[in-house]
Design a protein around this nucleic acid. Structure first.
Lengths: 345, 345
DNA sequence: CTGAAAGCGCTAACAC
DNA sequence: GTGTTAGCGCTTTCAG
């Protein structure tokens, strides 16, 4: 049975009007008599008609240059990471609340980004948000040529001429260094996520810079791959040395939790008694009673609202210059840094 | 500047062929000379042309009834929950690997599902996957009428005539009860997620059934809202009673972790010394050294593969009867149940 | 193997 | 206010 879906022509016929009347009935500001609209809407409801969004975007495409597929493409890596899961959840809600739909791509590494971008462009998404991944110069140009606004979330956009919303990584590293120095630590280790990415590097640089001011260097560098397991292994390596670090700063909370669990359960070391520990992000698990991890919080709600606002604004009025916004992280004092807890003097 | 995007006509002109030749060059099986195709593809690459997926789906729409937008709609609740984040991550990867794109909707409660469904239908998605949410009889009919296959993941589909992939909740509850009874527990409490949902109810029922066989009843019922905080509060309530439960079965790991942290850090109670604890799902955090939570594992990789396979199969060959698959959970013995650890005799 | 031509379902001028 | 008429960019017969 060729179950062709019901179109505006079917409704037109049934309601005894022209097809364009049906179209108008479904377009908010369109010139149409209230009574006509009502009748059409009734017939439509009865016959289970819904305007075809694809066809709609096809025809309005020509209008001016903004294509109005009604979709924004989102590219994300490591969705299983709680930090990203939260981020996507917020993006999704904000976008939906403003009437936009999200076409989601997950990529496993940076090289896949271009492919995802291409697919997204084929769908004529009205805008693209890229989470924690780089954008090639080439694709940045392609997007600009198409007039598709791009938002780099959690990554800088130097020389790319696209929007970006990010946390102040360098500053965050300094804040962490500060509190650790205040607590009197001298052998401070750093656990990177991916040592090659900008985020991790910025945090490391901030730490190093602040330590240098006291004539110190980062005591040890480790890599934790942005995962709990990676953090745990880094912690094991760090604390198995004859000369142990007396403090650890991790580029993310998940890794810091890995270090904490490793120290506590594999090695019998306790924070802040035996070492101080500080993370980055402030994921929910950081606040669990058994963790109480001191960390640098990213104001993700505000950051995402800003990112979505920029993107929506640019979809509505194209050809704006790209905007770059940076947010500061806030030190959240909990119990893993010596002498600096919520209940300390 | 009216930056119209480059179309197949532009390529046709530049390559000195007809527009339909360009179309054929981009359609795998189409009749076209290899040399012609190559030339076209080159020109296209040079001019940065990509076929417009929207337009493509518009025209192939008529074909037969399967609309081929190339998108599958996914509706999810509580994306911030690690369990769902993982699930979505896997769905996304599998779908992408098979060339499908994911239009994602997050909903905050069951009543929003119908709205999301409507939006999805407007985009003519080729199929719909609903995670842990119910489907109204009405929308089930609408989808069937349109010929859009629907997959209920983690929810049953009685009388709905749609596909479903789910875990054996009742059986899982029994397994939990079994191991707890073996350990000699008698005052076994249950922490529900949402006491009204089928998932939680199934697990509770399995527990109750097994206990009844020993002449026991569920000692106490609590609700944890499927969150860590909810679990923690439930734990606090449970263990503050004069007569404490000696074991707790939680409808999800996150809640079980809440109970564990509450007991350990708020109350000074330790598992399995003072009580036994068992969760459901086997999220990564359950295996963290400081947790080592005994739990019922959902084989989510297999489950998702199955769900995706069914959905893809039905998109390719429509009008199949709906399929329902149930998976069994596996008991993962770790250290929170008395006398039943990986290292126990 | 290739080009011409007819739509897919809708929106947006343009007349009436 | 309403109907008529072109397209949006592509796929797909249908001739040649």
């Amino acid at each position: 049975m060729p179950r062709r879906s019901v179109t505006s022509y079917d409704i037109a016929k049934a309601a005894g009007v022209s097809q364009s009347a049906v179209s108008r009935a479904f377009s908010p500001g369109a010139p149409i008599a209230a009574k006509t609209r009502e009748r059409i809407l009734n017939v439509a409801a009865e016959m289970g008609y819904q305007p075809n969004a694809i066809a709609r975007s096809m025809s309005s495409a020509r209008q001016d240059t903004h294509q109005k597929s009604g979709m924004v493409g989102v590219i994300v890596t490591r969705l299983e990471d709680p930090f990203f899961a939260h981020t996507i959840a917020h993006f999704s809600r904000h976008l939906q609340a403003s009437g936009w739909h999200m076409l989601l791509f997950t990529v496993d590494n940076e090289v896949e980004v271009d492919g995802a971008l291409n697919a997204l462009m084929q769908y004529k998404v009205d805008s693209i948000i890229i989470l924690s991944a780089i954008l090639s110069k080439h694709m940045a140009r392609v997007c600009r040529d198409q007039g598709t606004p791009v938002m780099l979330y959690n990554r800088g956009a130097e020389g790319l001429n696209v929007n970006s919303v990010q946390i102040e990584n360098h500053e965050g590293g300094r804040i962490a260094a500060d509190i650790l120095r205040e607590a009197g630590h001298e052998r401070i280790a750093f656990v990177a996520g991916d040592p090659n990415d900008e985020t991790s590097q910025g945090r490391a640089a901030g730490l190093a810079e602040r330590l240098a001011e006291d004539g110190l260097e980062v005591f040890l560098h480790e890599t934790g791959d942005y995962t709990f397991v990676g953090g745990r292994e880094a912690g094991l390596r760090l604390f198995s040395r004859v000369e142990r670090p007396d403090a650890v700063f991790c580029a993310s909370d998940v890794m810091a939790l890995g270090v904490l669990h490793a120290a506590r359960h594999d090695l019998g070391l306790e924070a802040p008694r035996d070492f101080s520990l500080i993370g980055f992000d402030d994921i929910p698990a950081a606040a669990w009673p058994g963790h109480m991890l001191t960390t640098i919080r990213q104001p993700i709600r505000r950051m995402i609202r800003e990112a979505v606002d920029i993107v929506i604004d640019q979809m509505n009025t194209p050809d704006q210059p790209p905007r770059v916004t940076r947010f500061s992280g806030a030190l959240i004092l909990r119990n893993t840094v010596r002498g600096a807890g919520p209940g300390s003097t």
